[in-house]
Design a protein around this nucleic acid. Structure first.
Lengths: 220, 220
DNA sequence: ATCGCGTTTCGACAGGGTGTCGAGATTGTT
DNA sequence: AACAATCTCGACACCCTGTCGAAACGCGAT
């Protein structure tokens, strides 16, 4: 646990010194290979040997850079979480003017993050079941989106734009969970799914109905 | 594919004759062992050897009954789909009187199915990523719930109880996906989750807001 | 009783994946 | 040139899957 988490952390503070030669390139090559292969076939069907050969090294050499296959995924996921955090950024500050557009932004950014890292996200969804670290890291990402949503809902209620009702946190969890699952199904082409061009509109519709209820999303 | 699917089907029409002795008991023993072990540790960590020894046979003997570990899960899932079908049954027929209670029934039954087969459902969510058959069978279950929901929404719109809006199917997909993910998170105790006693109420709240919007769920 | 025939069981094997160890090659620094 | 950190890989032990063929079992027909 500690080992893998450390390896997945920012590359600067790993057990190694600064004076590196080919190492950084190799590490990047492994990550690039992983991301490429993940677009071709499910994560579970990619072996460490595939990753190593793709990066031009032997299987044992792989272990010099990552402690396991999951650690590679974790590193990739770390990048996504960073981007997701940046995307969520200041959306809620400007909620007061044109809430409908703000909410659309929030969902749209969620969606963009998913689409931009489709392969990583789908692989994580797979690995999440079997790997506790992936599960925790993913949970942390989702938790941030939930908190962001919750805060925005409470602000809307406070200024009288949205009616009171169930705890904002519960709604935030339900809505964000919906987004996760629906987008996943759409991107994976898995089972019943909303068509890609419509997905943001459909989700937004549910969000606005739930948050504002009979109140039509006010202009100010 | 054909092989595994056949083994997962109803036990009557398998390649074997009727005159069986200890076989049926052994098959049941394997299924029981699987369900028991799944409550103790993740499906991925259960080996065929565990299943075989749990049922009192050797590993090769296991293959006499099931072609793979996934086939066991598929058989278990078959049971759940049957129960889910029965549960969905006649809910929409009686929608006209007291819609709120009817919707609550629908969500409640979904919830009951999840809870009753918690281990199977969680294992399927795991296996779904790696196994196409599990994915398809699960998709079929969800598709039925979606269709059921869609039909009910359209009926409510037709009788003027619910306003028109986005395609009923898209809403049905979004709402059922939400239910799946939220209930999964709650049961798995995974990441941000709604507390178990509240989960049905929270989901119902989102459903009613989305389906009826400003219209308060009418009495008739 | 015993022969024959499906049913059931398992030892042994091949194949493929993981993770580790220790010896060696490489390269910047002194 | 020599040292040490960095990097690489052959070889090994281990676990798991799936298959094969031989053998044991149980029961009806002879």
């Amino acid at each position: 646990m500690t080992t893998a988490r450390a390896a997945a952390g920012n590359t600067a503070t790993r057990g190694r010194r600064a004076g590196r030669r080919s190492g950084d390139q190799r590490e990047l090559a492994i990550l690039a290979t992983a991301e490429r292969l993940m677009t071709e076939r499910p994560f579970a069907e990619i072996s460490i040997d595939d990753l190593a050969r793709g990066a031009g090294i032997s299987r044992p050499a792989f272990y010099f850079y990552f402690p396991s296959k999951d650690a590679v995924l974790l590193t990739l996921l770390d990048r996504v979480t960073a981007e997701a955090d940046a995307a969520a950024g200041d959306t809620l500050d400007r909620m007061a003017d044109d809430p409908r557009s703000r909410w659309r932004d929030l969902i749209g950014r969620f969606h963009d993050t998913f689409r931009a890292h489709k392969a990583v996200v789908l692989a994580c969804a797979q690995a999440r079941g079997a790997n506790a670290e992936v599960r925790e890291l993913w949970a942390a990402v989702l938790e941030r989106w939930v908190r962001c949503t919750q805060t925005a809902i409470e602000a809307e209620r406070r200024r009288g734009a949205a009616p009171d009702g169930l705890p904002a946190r519960d709604l935030a969890i339900a809505l964000n969970s919906m987004n996760e699952r629906v987008m996943h199904a759409t991107l994976a082409g898995d089972g019943p799914a909303v068509a890609e061009p419509d997905v943001v509109d459909v989700l937004l519709d549910v969000w606005l109905s739930t948050i504002y209820r009979d109140t039509t999303p006010p202009a100010d």
